[in-house]
Amino acid sequence: MQRLFTIVRLFKEYFVLALLSVISLALLSLNDNSQIRTIRAYTIGIVGTLQSAISIIPNFFSLETENEILRQQNVVLTDEVSRLREARLENLRLREMLQLKEHSPFRLVAADVVGKTLDLLRNSITINAGERDGIRINMPIVSEAGLVGRVIATSSHYAVAQLMVNRDFRASAKIQRSRVMGILAWAGGESLQLKNVAKTQDVIEGDLAMTSEYSNVFPRDIKIGTVTHVAEREGGLFKEIQIRPSVDFAMLEHVFVITTTPNPERQALESKVAK
């Protein structure tokens, strides 16, 4: 026994390292634990308040570039607004003709981005809307440009959203032109990839990718981005499709949370069939 103590004392650094590593690995495997979610909710609340206060300070390094981009966007958007006005009028006219009623089935909650982690490690945003505004985990987040991500943690006044450019993000997506379906995932860097698309299916560069009706989290037909690269690897079954997101995550300031939760009836039926 005495010998064992001597060994432990001699190599105490290694024992402590092993112990801390085991605890860390155990925590990694417990990532969906409810107690941990509660602790996170508190920390998110505190940090969200701090980030909200600090977000008024501009980043001087990027201010000049940001101004330039905003000016360019202003020109593009002004042009787009006038075209959209025309399209809206035409749309109204056509709807009237077809006697279709205009509807928006979802309630949108507007929120400001008060914190942003875009170091390409843990790409997420903190927004100043939380459980008190009806925000729940897994609700989709969109901006005027398209899909942004989904809510992964909430406190009473704040929520953290996982962006599309996050290693854990997955969504069912389709190509607007050819209706080809696939699974959307982050490819690293700034691009996304559409997986499980067979080589025989029709996808070309420039195609628009949208959310598909297969998703139980995201409503259908939300714009995701544009196909920038299509390749076929020899011996592989699927195409390699890269998509550039339509949302500029670096410029993201205001978002909308779609306060829709997965359809319980559909979920129940699907899980029943799966059993």
Binding site: S21, S24, L28, I39, I152
Partner: peptide
Amino acid sequence: LDLISGDFLGLSALTKTL
């Protein structure tokens, strides 16, 4: 850091320890 970032609890704990 892990608690605040709301993602991958234990990852920074492990890497910072190492």
